[in-house]
Design a binder for these strands. Structure first.
Lengths: 197, 197
DNA sequence: TCCGTTTTTCAAAAAAAATTGAACATAGAG
DNA sequence: CTCTATGTTCAATTTTTTTTGAAAAACGGA
């Protein structure tokens, strides 16, 4: 099986070029780190980004020198934010995954997912709290001091709610690839983008 | 000094309203967590967001029940991403900090800083690696197989560079508050934004 | 269906990040 | 300038996250 993985590791990479790749892979991992992604998972994405062909958990494990179980966690995380995709067909019973190599796409899906989560969490708590706060403001027995402060809090939440409604629109446009974002300028290789999976 | 902090804690917050604030503060911390911000630092921002007046390290320490040294780290992190500002004037020798309460502004400065860092890291390594890769492609002694692969890597980096140049423009527009982003719709209270520091 | 293999889950171990107290540095009042 | 209190840094501790190996579950070929 050590043999098999060597055979399947695909096109062998010269030492010099491996070193060059590693520099970029490390930067990719560092950047993803910035946004709270596990550094190793970022490295794995970097590897798959260059490999640019379907990989199995076993191959990942070999490249990364890590347990297959950790690779299982990694592909789950990367799949959830659509940085990689699971192919429909297995290869000798093994699941195959391929990296999204279009950074503009990863940008959209990664931040789309994160920001959507943010909007959901924040709007939900804002809307949970607002009625109670209104009640404090409106209640007869509330002291003027407390009323004034509750009103300030309420207005802050109203402002925040406005913001999050705007952000929801932003997320929607982000996901749809609204021309709004000026994406065309960046994407010369647009045509082949959605094909290769 | 226990006394002093009680006196200076500002407007006292009723238990019910404290509970409501805490729900929102927790959501804020959770969201910031999403982007790799220390959860406690996120809570601190939430506290300051509601408090909406200058606070000293000592007050933070009391609110958070944490060491002053940790608060020092927290304000540094929050200041760097411009979620809070240090005031020019001290209060009884103590530095004062105030939260940015306009979420659209925090959105811009937070992601502006993160994305700028990403662009810098990535462009720097892409540009470091590209010449060496070109050399491999061009060298006489390179095998056809290796040349083909090096060329693939090179093209990937060229595509990535294009993306990061686009992203640099995005960051610039984000920071300038380009109308492009549809910010106006969200910002009713724009005028007083830059005043209070 | 059964069997061999791959994938996922779980609890424990290892590694990394957050937090602290103490030492040091800085600042500003007197 | 000196003295005292605040702010920062550092090394050590605590807490959390990451990683692992083993066990359970899911899968697919025969």
């Amino acid at each position: 099986m050590e043999n098999e993985s060597a055979r399947e590791t695909g096109s062998s990479v010269s030492p010099k070029r491996r070193e060059l790749r590693e520099k970029v892979i490390e930067s990719i991992a560092t950047t993803m780190d910035l946004y709270g992604v596990n550094h190793s998972f970022g490295q794995l994405y970097g590897i798959m980004y260059f490999e640019d062909r379907p990989m199995t958990l076993e191959e990942m494990k070999d490249y990364m020198n890590m347990s297959k179980s950790n690779m299982s966690y990694a592909v789950r995380a990367l799949t959830e934010s659509q940085m990689i995709y699971k192919l429909d067909e297995k290869k000798d019973r093994k699941d195959q995954y391929i990296a999204e190599t279009d950074f503009f796409h990863t940008f959209r899906s990664f931040f789309g997912a994160k920001l959507q989560r943010e909007v959901d969490v924040m709007l939900s708590s804002i809307r949970e709290v607002t009625p109670d706060l209104s009640e404090i403001v409106l209640a007869q027995q509330t002291t003027p001091e407390e009323r004034e402060q509750a009103l300030r809090d309420l207005h802050k939440l109203q402002h925040a709610e406005q913001y999050y409604m705007w952000l929801q629109g932003f997320v929607d446009r982000l996901r749809d690839g609204d021309p709004f974002f000026g994406t065309e300028a960046s994407q010369s290789g647009e045509k082949e983008k959605e094909a290769g999976r």
